[in-house]
Nucleic acid binder design. Structure first.
Lengths: 126, 126
DNA sequence: TTGCTCCTCACGTCACGTGAGGTGGC
DNA sequence: TTGCTCCTCACGTCACGTGAGGTGGC
């Protein structure tokens, strides 16, 4: 799949996709002879996951780490110690994600208040 | 009120306050002899309003414009034409705010899904 | 061959953050 | 006088956006 189709499917810009490639967040699985980025279905799923994470305010580097942890946890034969360490890191991300979600909820309700204030102002000006 | 107290009350950083000053978004009402920024209660209220708007993703310039419209609508003697024009601009901002809020709500639910996925992964790894 | 898609620099932008070096004010 | 708060540059950063000039591929 070329970058254009991926951009359409993920609603991410061409530049964003190139930026994620350069940042090592989602490196396309292959390149064509001419150097065109070639994405697999798995790559696209990864990008969609990233899009879900974005509102939680993680940096690209943090998202890269989280995805790495998730990938490695998926591996079949993993030493028990490694698995435990990975789960600890995963829990750290979980906590951060939940805190960020709580903040988002609060921001949303403040934004809601603000919108109500605008409405009131409009009514008054009528 | 000096910048430090304002930072505490608004939970905005010193740098952010200076940046808003330079951007013309909230210019402190006065300066001390020595050049210290002096904020009034009105300035602080303005900053709190901005904090409410921030999640809606407006640029500093757009927030500046919106606040100007709101301020000018508050004026007592305003030609009818001006008032109508200001209300039009206000409605534009209202629409943008509502759209942004809708997007935020959607992002939040996607983030929620993501958190659930993380939880599931953690459970499975147990 | 044409035209659409893609490529890599390189520089710009937005909203700040981070020192460095210096001064104000109770 | 001391120490804490504040000041202005100037440069850095993060996540991209925006051309410029060139090439790939059906």
């Amino acid at each position: 799949m070329q970058i254009g189709e991926v951009a359409d499917r993920t609603r991410l810009s061409l530049n964003t996709l190139r930026h994620y490639d350069q940042a090592g967040l989602v490196v396309p699985s292959a390149r064509s002879q001419g150097g065109f980025r070639l994405y697999t279905e798995t790559d696209v799923q990864r990008l969609l996951t990233i899009r879900r994470m974005k509102p939680l305010g993680f940096s690209l580097e943090e998202m890269r780490e989280l995805l790495e942890v998730v990938d490695r946890l998926g591996a079949a034969d993993l030493p028990v110690d490694d698995r435990a360490a990975l789960r600890d890191r995963l829990r750290g991300f979980q906590r951060a994600a939940q805190e960020q979600r709580d903040k988002l909820v609060e921001q949303l309700s403040r934004a809601q208040e603000f919108i109500a204030t605008l409405q009131q102002l409009d009514d008054e000006a009528g």
